[in-house]
Nucleic acid binder design. Structure first.
Lengths: 164, 164
DNA sequence: GTCATTGCAAATGGTTTGCATTGTA
DNA sequence: TACAATGCAAACCATTTGCAATGAC
C-alpha cells in the first residue's frame, strides 16, 4: 500500500525481447539490501527463475528442478524459506488453488484467476475487474481490500456452452 | 447450476426459534434419496452438526469431536469422505483460508469472506456484492462465475485505521 | 443379496523445523 | 567476527487410500 511502482515488463529491445532478467533481479535484490536484508545465492536464483517464467506460476518443487542444473546444492527447504521470505517482503505473491502445491509469481502486475470447475482451465483477469467489489467493501464495511491474488470458480465459455 | 432453491432458514416459530434442525436434515437427506444416493448415519450426523453450528464453519476434525458423543464409531476418514460426497452433491460448501484445515457449511445462503491480513478478522459479505464482478467476467471472458465461496484479503476497518 | 459405505491403519505429499554448518555483511 | 541463511534429515498434519467388514436398499 506504499508501493506505487508499476514497472513495465522492461523496455523493449529492437529484437522484441525485453531487458535482461538480470537487471530486474538486481533491482529487486537492491530492495532487499536497502531493507537491510541479505542477498544470497538462493534468493537470487529463485527470483531469476520466477522472472524467466514470465508470469507462469511456479511451485517450490518446480523451482528446485529449474534451479538444480545451475545450483544443485539449493535444497527444497531453502526454496520454501526463500519463498516465504520474499512473500513477506512483498516481492512475490503466493497463489493457492485447491490443495495443490502453492505457486508463486513476482508481484509486478496484480492479476487474478477464474478457474473452470469442469475442465480446470484458468483464465487471468486484471486487478481493475475487482474495482467495484473493492469499492463496495470499503463503502459498506470499511474493509480496505488489497486483493493480491484471488481465485473465483465457475465455468469457462467452452464448458458453459457444452452445458451438461 | 440446476439448483434454484433458496430455502429460507426455516419458518419462524412463535418463540423466535426456527423449525427444528431435524426437519431441515430430513429435507436434505430426501434430496439424496431422490438422486438414488444412500442415506447413512454418518451423512445424517454430519448434516445435523453443520446445521446446528448455524453458519459457523466446521472442519472435519471439529465435526468428529462434536459427533463423537453421539456416534463414537464415526471415523475421521468417514467424515472426510462424507464431506466430499456432500460437497459434490452440492449440499455443502468447502471453505479454505490459507493452509488451515478446510471448513464446511451448508450451501443455503451464498456468502463470502474478507480476511484482515493484520488481525485475522473475517467479515462476511453476501453474494450480491460480487454481482458486477460476475457480470464483467461473463461479458469480457464468457466465464460463467459461480462463486461458491470466495476469500479476499486486505485490512479491516480497525487495522486500516491503526495504519502502521 | 448386492453393492455402496465405513472403520481402521497405513500411506501421501506439501510444508515445516531442529540443528550443525556455511556464507554474507 | 557475528549472526542470518542454508543443507539435511526428520517431523508435521491435513487428507487420502486399500481392504475387509458392515449396512442400506
Amino acid at each position: 500500500m506504499r508501493r506505487r511502482t508499476h514497472p513495465p515488463r522492461g523496455p523493449r529491445l529492437a529484437s522484441g525481447t525485453v531487458a535482461p532478467v538480470t537487471d530486474r533481479v538486481d533491482e529487486l535484490l537492491e530492495q532487499l539490501r536497502a531493507r537491510g536484508d541479505r542477498v544470497t545465492t538462493a534468493r537470487r536464483a529463485v527470483l531469476v527463475e520466477l522472472l524467466e517464467a514470465e508470469g507462469r506460476h511456479l511451485s517450490a518443487e518446480e523451482l528446485v528442478e529449474r534451479i538444480g542444473p545451475k545450483h544443485p546444492d539449493i535444497h527444497l527447504s531453502t526454496v520454501y524459506r526463500t519463498l516465504e521470505f520474499l512473500r513477506l517482503a512483498g516481492i512475490i505473491v503466493q497463489v493457492r488453488v485447491d490443495r495443490d502445491a502453492a505457486a508463486y509469481h513476482v508481484a509486478d502486475h496484480g492479476h487474478h484467476h477464474a478457474v473452470c470447475a469442469t475442465c480446470g482451465a484458468m483464465i487471468e483477469f486484471p486487478d481493475q475487474v475487482l474495482r467495484s467489489l473493492v469499492n463496495r467493501l470499503a463503502r459498506d464495511h470499511g474493509f480496505v481490500a488489497e486483493p493480491r491474488h484471488l481465485v473465483i470458480d465457475g465455468r469457462c465459455a467452452a464448458c458453459a456452452a457444452a452445458d451438461n
